[in-house]
Write a protein that binds this DNA or RNA. Sequence first.
DNA 1: CAAAGTTCCTGCGAGC
DNA 2: TGCTCGCAGGAACTTT
Length: 302
Amino acid sequence: MPELPEVETVRRGLAPVMEGAVISGAEIRRPDLRWPLPERMAERLEGRRVIGLGRRAKYLTADLDDAGAGPEVLIMHLGMSGSFRIDKEDAAPGEAPLTPGVFEIPRSRAEAHDHVVLHLSSGARITYNDPRRFGAMLMVPRAELEAHPLFRDLGPEPLGNAFDAGYLASAVARRATSLKAALLDQKVVAGLGNIYVSEALYRAHLSPERIASSLANTKGRPTAGAVRLVEAVRDVLNEAITAGGSTLRDHAQVDGTLGYFQHRFRVYDREDAPCPTPGCRGLVRRMVQNGRATFYCKICQK
DNA sequence: CAAAGTTCCTGCGAGC
DNA sequence: TGCTCGCAGGAACTTT
């Protein structure tokens, strides 16, 4: 479930085994994910040290040391169904077995979607699995990262200082689209996806159908709703990251899985459930906006 | 059947 | 009038 909190959870899980480690080998098992994988990817990764593992929006960024060609960044996106898992590198020769219980589906089917494997000097083996292959991996020179087409137009991080009500109001002031669509637009704010947009709008008591520009008053200043929305976005993301971290720890101890956790949503995927707002008699509704499901309460979200 | 994401394409309206 | 630009909305990618 890769929106910002999930990607951040994955980053925190991978960082201990990746940061400072040297990539001793890489297995590239197919030529492409969403796009072709980098040219000579395995050769270019081999022997490189991972300086740090970062995140921008829903992208993971592994900083690679200078290997003659200058420092580079390995950009990774999980798409809809991507996940990483960590296995201990088996000292014995031959293919190490998967840790029992990692997948509920048979091992053969799980391995069918293991597309990239990184062997690390830390003794960990990191496997990228992605059935739908909407994910992506790219390698770009460190100096070109911010100007890269994927990064260039990204809005501010929702948990950073730049994302405040004043910014949000100005960003949507001329937008005739719905609030739902505006928040999903990574140019407005980077990292929200379908789940957390529904959750944030519910918490702010704002209708997903409201016109985005209504968050700004006639002078372009933020409305009270804009202030509530910024706080709701930050709250829901922080809570999800916290929950993901604790779930991750449980899973890591049990089976080494990363990027998989259960979460409790107030409206998302809760059609017909009673609205959780105290005193509200409404039901959670499901509708489709821009081809995506939106969950909301008609009564208390205005 | 519907699905957590993003890019690309088309069509529309505004403005020059 | 006709062209360009930007925006909004939808299709497409794929597997379970």
